[in-house]
Amino acid sequence: MNQSKQICTFYLDNLYLGLVAERVQETSRNHNITPVPLAPRVISGVMNLRGRISTAINLDELLSLEKQKENQRTANIVIRTENNELLNLLVDRVDDILEIEDQHFEYPPETLSSEVRGLIQGAYKLEKNLLLLIDHKSLFKRISQITKLKNQKEIIH
């Protein structure tokens, strides 16, 4: 019997991306972001999620996509980190929750740039297109690396 996963899918630029659905708490259209001055660019700011402060993450920056105006990202996916913090990933459009069988999974293609490859767990070959699964663990790790690095630089200066 084939195992399958539930995956929350979304669009970012021309990429079709997905996250394991169990990590996703909700999706929202809230785009009232308070910027945090001096924060690294991957952090777009902070948002109010029903009384909790969540951190808005600039996925473009993380995936080294061509620079786009952040406010164009009108949708966001709220995920929980291991520390039970909330992150809002800013995306273009939330698509669906798909139940995909593991047999369609394949490791990331070599053609992906090295920065992105670390964050992409692999690809699901769907009928119409390819779905890239984001590895949330490396995502958290990457963000914390960037924020720490920024801090160290500041100490040196």
């Binding site: 924060a39 402060i53 924020t147 720490k148």
Partner: peptide, 8 residues
């Protein structure tokens, strides 16, 4: 604030 913003 998030752990990620603690360095600030």
């Amino acid at each position: 604030l998030s752990e990620y913003l603690k360095p600030l």
